[in-house]
Amino acid sequence: MVSVPPLESICNKFLQVNDTNKLPAEESSNTSFCKDCELPLIDVVHLYHKDDCRNVECKRRIADAAKVWGFFQIINHGIPRDVLIRMQSEQRKLFEKPFEEKIISSSSGSCYRWGNPTAMSLQEFSWSEAFHLPLCHVPSLSSSGLNEFTEQVSNIAQRISEILAESLGCKSTLFAEICSQNSSYVRLNRYPPCPNFPKAYGLIPHTDSDFLTVLYQDQLGGLQLLKDGEWINVNPNQDVLIINVGDLFEAWSNGFYKSIKHRVVTNPVAERQSIAYFLCPTHETVIQSYCSPSLYRKFSFGEYRKQIQEDVKSTGTKIGLPKFLK
């Protein structure tokens, strides 16, 4: 039994139906079209430093990066290297299971997804597979590395969200109150080698629909973000975690913090893996701007997710926040 989903057969169908069904040059996943960049790198050890000046400066840099870039890197985040190594090993074993077993397995409460099976074109198709795991289901995997990672990365996400709220003069405990293990989740990603490189995305361009995302990626690279109208490569670094602002934080901050479009490119010969933590509220949570006049109307997280699903079904793509502008 094979472990890889039938990505190639689906991709080939799109190419056979219409030979022009390729990514345009400016949207191509080929990294030769993209610039390299170094995201803001912030040493968060200073958040726990007794020197108030360093502590204040660290918080300022986090808020500035969320405003200007929507993405930044943190170093000295406190997650030991051995935890990350064990987590990656456990992740590989999970994806090595036969494809049929991954499809039907539900004992862990996980949700297995691959390649956007409902995609209508190559532009909507992702050359990847993933497990979506609510935090409350992670312990059932008996995975010590993943357990330790999610516990620590959850604390990091909460701390970063507190800092971003404080910088706007708001209640710092807000996100701890509305985001829990029952609403937040992790996603384990695997991007197999792609013989159709650069005709397919590893993960299609998108913004994240949460408050904050914390990402740990391997050393292959492939993450790109849209900055000032250009796609740029995010260089991998095994010592950092990548933080990015999601749609909910942009709406709550009234556009002060930016939810930036990003994507993952394919690789013709090497496999890439990553793990992302998503800080999410309950579906009943109402999202509204912290100040007036608000750019966006009030909406619940459940309403937001439902609108995204409807848009993807009807248009093939996520529209997101523009649908909720006043």
Rank of each mutant, 00 (worst) to 15 (best):
K102R: 02
P40R: 05
S294Y: 06
W231H: 00
P293I: 08
K313A: 14
F278R: 14
G115D: 08
E8T: 02
G115C: 09
D218H: 07
G202R: 07
K59P: 04
F131S: 10
R305P: 01
L223W: 06
C37T: 12
C280Y: 12
I287T: 07
P198Q: 04
S259V: 03
S294L: 06
L188H: 05
D247W: 04
L135Y: 09
K35Q: 11
V83W: 10
G255Q: 01
T213S: 08
L203R: 04
T31Q: 11
L279W: 13
L188G: 09
A270Q: 13
I260N: 12
C280T: 10
L122I: 02
G202K: 04
V240E: 09
C11I: 04
S89L: 05
S143D: 09
C179K: 02
L94I: 01
K50E: 08
I242Y: 02
P293T: 04
S144E: 14
F301W: 12
K261F: 02
R54N: 15
D82K: 13
N237F: 07
T207R: 12
N147H: 10
G246Q: 06
E151C: 09
N196I: 04
R187F: 01
Q217C: 01
L133M: 15
L226C: 05
L295T: 03
L135W: 08
G229P: 00
H137K: 15
Y277K: 06
S9F: 04
H49I: 01
F256I: 06
